[in-house]
Amino acid sequence: MFVLVNLKAYPCDPVEIAEAAADVSDETGVRVAVAPQAAHLSAVAETGVETWAQHVSPVEHGSHTGSTLAEAVADAGAEGTLINHSEARRKLADIDASLDAAERADLETVVCANNPEQVGAAAALGPDAVAVEPPELIGTGTPVSKADPDIVTDAVEAAAAVDESVDVFCGAGISTGDDLDAAADLGATGVLLASGVAKADDPRAALEALVEPLA
Score class of each variant (00 low, 15 high):
residue 204 R to G: 03
residue 94 D to G: 06
residue 203 P to G: 04
residue 188 A to P: 05
residue 38 A to H: 05
residue 92 L to F: 14
residue 169 F to A: 03
residue 193 L to F: 13
residue 150 D to T: 01
residue 214 L to F: 15
residue 117 E to N: 15
residue 71 E to V: 05
residue 176 T to D: 07
residue 207 L to C: 13
residue 80 G to F: 08
residue 81 T to P: 08
residue 20 A to D: 07
residue 68 T to S: 10
residue 93 A to C: 14
residue 95 I to L: 07
residue 53 A to E: 04
residue 56 V to H: 04
residue 183 A to S: 11
residue 93 A to W: 15
residue 157 E to G: 00
residue 113 A to G: 02
residue 109 T to W: 10
residue 92 L to H: 13
residue 90 R to H: 14
residue 17 I to N: 06
residue 137 L to H: 06
residue 112 C to P: 02
residue 119 V to P: 02
residue 96 D to H: 14
residue 42 S to I: 13
residue 200 A to L: 09
residue 199 K to H: 09
residue 204 R to D: 12
residue 5 V to P: 10
residue 66 G to P: 03
residue 158 A to M: 12
residue 148 D to H: 07
residue 93 A to M: 15
residue 23 D to N: 04
residue 171 G to N: 03
residue 25 S to M: 11
residue 33 A to H: 05
residue 25 S to E: 10
residue 91 K to P: 11
residue 128 D to Q: 05
residue 161 A to R: 01
residue 24 V to A: 05
residue 56 V to Q: 02
residue 136 E to P: 07
residue 31 R to V: 13
residue 50 E to W: 12
residue 129 A to Y: 04
residue 178 D to F: 00
residue 70 A to P: 12
residue 96 D to K: 15
residue 202 D to F: 05
residue 87 E to Q: 02
residue 132 V to L: 01
residue 144 V to Y: 12
residue 46 E to Q: 07
residue 46 E to Y: 11
residue 120 G to T: 06
residue 26 D to C: 06
residue 62 G to Y: 14
residue 75 D to W: 11
residue 37 Q to T: 10
residue 146 K to A: 14
residue 41 L to W: 06
residue 38 A to D: 13
residue 145 S to G: 10
residue 104 R to I: 13
residue 150 D to C: 01
residue 43 A to F: 00
residue 207 L to Q: 04
residue 35 A to P: 09
residue 89 R to N: 14
residue 170 C to Q: 02
residue 129 A to W: 06
residue 84 N to W: 09
residue 129 A to H: 05
residue 178 D to M: 05
residue 50 E to V: 13
residue 172 A to M: 14
residue 77 G to H: 12
residue 148 D to N: 15
residue 65 T to I: 12
residue 120 G to Q: 08
residue 192 L to D: 09
residue 73 V to C: 10
residue 146 K to E: 15
residue 159 A to H: 07
residue 178 D to T: 02
residue 138 I to F: 12
residue 95 I to M: 00
residue 33 A to M: 08
residue 15 V to Q: 09
residue 100 D to R: 15
residue 172 A to F: 11
residue 144 V to K: 08
residue 93 A to H: 15
residue 55 H to C: 10
residue 19 E to R: 10
residue 153 T to F: 00
residue 53 A to D: 01
residue 165 S to T: 11
residue 95 I to Y: 05
residue 163 D to C: 03
residue 209 A to L: 05
residue 98 S to G: 06
residue 168 V to W: 01
residue 36 P to V: 02
residue 148 D to S: 15
residue 144 V to A: 12
residue 110 V to C: 09
residue 172 A to C: 14
residue 177 G to W: 10
residue 106 D to M: 05
residue 82 L to A: 08
residue 52 W to V: 06
residue 83 I to P: 08
residue 117 E to I: 13
residue 159 A to K: 00
residue 177 G to F: 08
residue 148 D to T: 09
residue 150 D to I: 00
residue 114 N to L: 11
residue 162 V to C: 01
residue 81 T to F: 12
residue 199 K to V: 09
residue 115 N to I: 01
residue 56 V to E: 03
residue 210 L to T: 07
residue 142 T to Y: 14
residue 189 T to Y: 10
residue 68 T to Q: 13
residue 139 G to M: 02
residue 44 V to E: 00
residue 72 A to F: 14
residue 1 M to F: 13
residue 155 A to D: 01
residue 23 D to L: 15
residue 179 D to C: 04
residue 172 A to N: 13
residue 34 V to L: 01
residue 24 V to I: 08
residue 107 L to A: 02
